[in-house]
């Protein structure tokens, strides 16, 4: 889908660095933005920042991915305020604590509720709006962690894997009504999630990933690994037979 002036997008989880730089990319192209996040002061700051830098309308909204009952009102208000939506970029996610999740269902549940159920709830509402309009784009930020279950982060991984499958099905459904669905699978991105954990040359800047996200939308991609080389890394990882994989310390 071509992205340009006059379009209006909702960004969910707008305060993360990746989301903020994606907002910059969209604002650079003249799009109006609704920036939604959990912390009122943080989304307010991001909205002001985007507006000052690029002069486009940018409004803050607060929401909680786990408060499913509040989601219909959020989307309705967004649509009535803007008139219509040209798409949604979903960035929110919960890394959680794998060790804790192995013993506490509450921890595991929080991870799954944010990453999967929160996304299902919100994206379904937006999907129905876009299906009716017969145009638009849905971008869901999943993760390479969702490509294969690993002992060190399978709770997070399975929630992202479920999100990838959900987006895949949604893409099939919405392709009939001219709505594009993009599954984004970032590798290591230089954010608080990886800071101090991964010190590898494979870590990409959030700016680079943000540029990749918007370019993927413009190129009409379905599933995209960012940066590109993760496609090949994950291909190899998926090909390892399970009987070997379970012995690897990954």
């Amino acid at each position: 889908m071509k992205i340009g002036a006059g379009q209006q997008f909702l960004i969910l989880g707008a305060t993360s660095p990746m989301a903020r730089y994606t907002a910059y990319e969209l604002a650079k192209r003249g799009c109006a933005l609704l920036l939604a996040g959990r912390s009122p002061s943080e989304v307010e700051a991001v909205a002001r920042d985007v507006h000052i830098r690029y002069g486009v309308p940018a409004q803050p909204r607060t929401f909680d991915a786990r408060d499913f009952a509040s989601h219909p009102a959020l989307i309705e208000e967004t649509v009535s305020q803007l008139g219509h939506l040209d798409g949604v970029f979903l960035f929110f996610g919960e890394q959680g604590d794998q060790a804790k999740a192995q013993h506490s269902f509450e921890e595991a549940r929080a991870i799954v509720e944010v990453n999967f159920l929160g996304a299902v709830s919100l994206l379904t509402l937006v999907a129905n709006h876009l299906e009716e309009r017969r145009s638009g784009v849905i971008v869901g930020v999943s993760s390479v962690a969702g490509d294969r279950g690993r002992r060190t982060n399978y709770v997070y991984g399975s929630s992202k894997g479920a999100l990838s499958l959900f987006l895949q099905g949604l893409r099939n459904r919405l392709s009939l009504s001219n709505v594009q669905v993009v599954t984004v699978k970032p590798g290591y991105v230089d954010t608080a999630m990886t800071y101090g954990v991964v010190t590898s040359r494979l870590v990409a800047s959030p700016q680079r990933v943000a540029r990749g996200i918007v370019r993927s939308v413009e190129k009409g991609r379905d599933v995209v690994y960012l940066p590109w080389f993760w496609q090949w890394i994950m291909l190899v990882i998926r090909l390892i037979p399970e009987r070997v994989f379970k012995r690897l310390n990954l």
């Binding site: 660095p17 700051a45 991001v46 002001r48 920042d49 000052i52 830098r53």
Partner: peptide, 19 residues
């Protein structure tokens, strides 16, 4: 360095507030 947002700008006077 990650606290780097512009927060207010007055286009008349040039008064800028940022992080």
């Amino acid at each position: 360095t990650r606290l780097d947002r512009f927060l207010d700008f007055d286009g008349e006077t040039g008064r800028l507030t940022c992080e």
